[in-house]
């Protein structure tokens, strides 16, 4: 895991890390080129037009048209970036997203200073949550009466997902704004209390990756970290089975309420 990080971009481990990195590299190459060319011109001007005896400044007002050339190139470059890069990729990453039918759906409840994950368990249904049930042993406020929640798996600061299919995180916060950030996946999204905000990613590498909070959330903001484990599908099934084994006896079959996604406020 430590080998993922260096002085440049961390290892890329999701399907949209590619386009994001492409943009970052392209823009930095362009920035570097612009700056170098510009610096050479700047240095030339300073040297060529330094004060010298017997030569005075030329007061001529040149037509400013020539000076519009750099503006024009910047404009063209930026329009190209917007049309061919930013809008389509933004749509793909932040607007479209995969269908919940083909993805793993996990609920995330952020709090000062932990990440709580809720999996639906074998019945595929999330138990109802409500703030009135929140207590130290039940940090996400799972309704003990809701049969759909009996087999739910909850983890703290550990996200387990399979390779080869997208994961959708439905995120909410109990207290203040947090921001879910996994450097290797190139994902980041603020989690605002009172809102349900979704985020998705599809891992391309198995392994353990770091979850960090990217929005100041209080005194222990820097300690608010977790791990994202990407398993091969069979490993993931094994993990799921092991977790379900520990969960209370499943009553999924009679989950008559059909309340797959509680009416809770968070």
């Amino acid at each position: 895991m430590k080998g993922n990080y260096g002085w440049g971009l961390p290892v890329a481990a999701s399907t949209f890390a590619g386009p994001i990195d492409f943009g970052i590299k392209l823009i930095h190459a362009a920035m570097f080129a612009i700056f170098i060319l510009w610096a050479i011109f700047f240095a030339y001007l300073l040297l060529r037009y330094r004060r010298r005896e017997g030569r005075s400044a030329q007061a001529g007002y040149e037509s400013p048209l020539k000076s519009l050339i750099p503006d024009f190139f910047v404009l063209v470059f930026e329009i190209a970036l917007i049309v061919f890069y930013a809008i389509p990729n933004w749509h793909r990453i932040k607007i479209a997203g995969p269908s919940p039918d083909t993805a793993l759906v996990v609920e995330l409840v952020a709090e000062q200073f932990a990440w709580n994950f809720q999996y639906p368990g074998p019945d595929g249904k999330f138990g109802r949550r409500d703030v009135q049930f929140i207590e130290p042993a039940n940090p996400i406020g799972l309704d003990p009466q809701d049969p759909a929640g009996k087999d739910d798996i909850t983890t703290v600061n550990e996200l387990h997902v399979p390779l080869g299919k997208p994961t959708i995180l439905n995120m909410s916060s109990k207290d203040v704004i947090h921001s879910f950030f996994v450097p290797e996946f190139r994902v980041k999204q603020d989690i605002v209390p009172g809102m349900k905000i979704s985020l998705w990613f599809e891992p391309t590498l198995a392994g353990r990756f770091e979850i960090g909070c990217a929005q100041l959330c209080g005194v222990a903001h820097s300690m608010m970290r977790g791990d994202a484990y990407v398993h091969t599908p069979s490993e993931y099934e094994a993990w799921l089975k092991a977790q379900s084994g520990q969960a209370p006896a499943t009553t999924a079959a009679n989950a008559a309420t059909g309340n797959s996604n509680g009416s809770s406020t968070f």
Binding site: I20, G23, I24
Partner: peptide
Amino acid sequence: LTVTDIYLH
């Protein structure tokens, strides 16, 4: 730029 800001924000 929205897309690169996802990572750098």
